Amino acid sequence: MRYLTRQFATGALRRGNGIEQFLGGAHIDGELAIRWVAISPGNRQYRVSLHTVQDPDDDQVGDLPNLISLDPVDEAYVGEGRQLGVTEDETEAMTLAERLTDARPDRWVNHAVAGEEYMDYVRSRRGPAQPT
């Protein structure tokens, strides 16, 4: 099972592990893009960040933070994304992320698993008859 229950997601954050959620595709200035939201613990706080990167349309690419950012804020600190907020409560961080990005409460995954969601997304766009 890929998705975390709310209890497991908050537990991961309390233990110092990040969580994230793949949000899907977008068009940024005519270019295909993908987005995901991440919650990263550190210094007794939880940082909520939104990532917007080029969509390479490659179902073998799962390391999303290394893709080319389409957000000028992220260009100086590659992979960190646009900070949406910081809070001291893990549940509040999740609620903030869900409110600001339309993330779903039932779709959180452990850190680095959003890349698997992206690969599934690419495969679903191709359909069963198209080669990978």
Score class of each variant (00 low, 15 high):
29 D>V: 05
66 N>S: 14
67 L>H: 05
27 H>I: 09
70 L>H: 07
2 R>M: 12
70 L>C: 10
1 M>T: 08
75 E>N: 10
104 R>W: 11
127 G>D: 09
132 T>A: 15
128 P>H: 10
90 E>Q: 09
21 Q>C: 11
114 A>K: 00
127 G>Q: 13
98 E>M: 15
129 A>Y: 08
126 R>C: 03
77 Y>W: 03
31 E>F: 04
124 S>N: 11
108 W>E: 14
131 P>Y: 00
116 E>I: 13
57 D>E: 12
97 A>P: 03
91 T>V: 12
71 D>T: 11
51 H>P: 02
94 M>E: 01
4 L>Q: 02
76 A>S: 08
69 S>P: 05
95 T>V: 12
81 G>Y: 05
23 L>S: 03
96 L>S: 12
57 D>N: 14
121 Y>T: 08
54 Q>K: 12
127 G>R: 03
4 L>K: 06
50 L>H: 00
52 T>P: 01
131 P>L: 14
126 R>M: 09
13 L>A: 04
118 Y>Q: 01
71 D>P: 02
47 R>L: 14
41 P>H: 10
85 G>M: 12
85 G>A: 07
57 D>A: 15
24 G>F: 03
66 N>W: 02
99 R>P: 07
83 Q>C: 14
28 I>M: 06
12 A>S: 15
12 A>H: 13
93 A>E: 02
93 A>M: 05
47 R>W: 08
31 E>L: 11
129 A>T: 15
109 V>R: 00
57 D>R: 13
112 A>C: 06
30 G>S: 04
58 D>Q: 13
33 A>Y: 01
14 R>N: 14
69 S>R: 07
2 R>Q: 07
102 D>M: 07
87 T>N: 10
34 I>K: 05
131 P>G: 02
26 A>R: 08
4 L>I: 03
50 L>N: 00
82 R>H: 11
49 S>N: 10
84 L>P: 00
110 N>M: 08
1 M>I: 02
42 G>S: 14
105 P>T: 15
94 M>A: 14
118 Y>A: 04
102 D>S: 10
34 I>C: 08
50 L>G: 10
6 R>C: 10
71 D>N: 10
22 F>G: 01
50 L>I: 13
55 D>E: 02
82 R>V: 02
59 D>P: 10
